[in-house]
């Protein structure tokens, strides 16, 4: 019964995540940028833009320039999360991919980094009056959700171990459209329930910053307006209307 419920929940969440995010990305990709607005100095070539994006994604370059505290906590959280996520591939692959094996031990420590980062970001929402001012309830809740996911996951690793083999069988089953038994430890159920809700709200929340970054004209445009004429389709129509 419970297994079926969670199976349905995860199918539902996955569909929403993929379709919702896909639709948003399609909207971003289809919406034209009428003018050249890279924040300069900007790269003058495509490859330069890739490098700029790389630095933003991998080092959070702009954030580093802006504020070292936010950078530190944000970095701890995001790269902690990345390693933890990669570590989770072990529950979906059989045999487990070799590089997942390699990062396995780091993934465990990464969960601490992730939780510390989240706690720091949340603390700032209370302690720094500027950030308190701009925070909506959802901004707090998002951090709580992520923290709860992290802590419940760590709880299963360090405190009340769950039958991880059975969990793996459950998810491998889902990938083949069969529903196997899911263990019923409360921590596991909480963890999975929260993860599913995160997947569901991803496309309708500020978590869209992830795909959004790649579509930000101030970061992804090449600085070459004098050399190459840039024209949005609707602007081209406007021109045809007469000059």
């Amino acid at each position: 019964m419970l297994s079926t419920l969670y199976a349905v929940l995860f199918y539902f969440a996955t569909i929403l995540l993929v379709v919702g995010t896909g639709l948003k990305i399609r909207k971003y990709a289809r919406t034209p940028a009428p003018l050249k607005i890279p924040t300069t100095p900007a790269p003058t070539t495509r490859s330069g833009v890739w490098l700029r994006m790389f630095r933003e994604v991998v080092f959070f370059e702009s954030l580093f320039k802006a504020n070292k505290w936010i950078w530190l906590f944000g970095y701890l959280f995001h790269f902690g999360l990345l390693l933890v996520l990669l570590r989770h591939f072990r529950y979906f692959t059989q045999p487990v991919w070799f590089w997942v094996e390699i990062i396995q031990p780091f993934g465990v420590y990464a969960s601490f980094a992730m939780v510390i980062g989240l706690a720091g970001l949340w603390a700032r929402r209370f302690l720094v009056e500027r950030i308190r001012y701009i925070s909506a309830p959802s901004d707090h809740l998002m951090l709580v959700l992520l923290l709860a996911i992290g802590l419940s996951g760590m709880g299963m690793k360090f405190v009340a171990k769950t039958d991880i083999v059975a969990v793996k069988i459950f998810f491998q089953g889902l990938m083949r459209f069969q529903i196997n038994d899911l263990p019923t430890d409360p921590l596991l159920l909480i963890h999975l329930g929260l993860v599913a809700s995160l997947m569901i709200i991803f496309p309708i929340s500020k978590l869209l910053h992830a795909p959004g970054l790649f579509f930000s004209p101030s970061r992804n445009q090449v600085d070459n307006p004098r050399e190459q004429r840039h024209l949005a389709p609707w602007a081209a129509k406007l021109e045809k209307g007469g000059r």
Partner: peptide, 24 residues
Amino acid sequence: LADKNRAFQVYLDACVKCGACTDK
């Protein structure tokens, strides 16, 4: 405007209220 200008659309969606810009 959100249909005509990608910057407007993306910027409305993407902000995470990190606060990095608050003192700029």
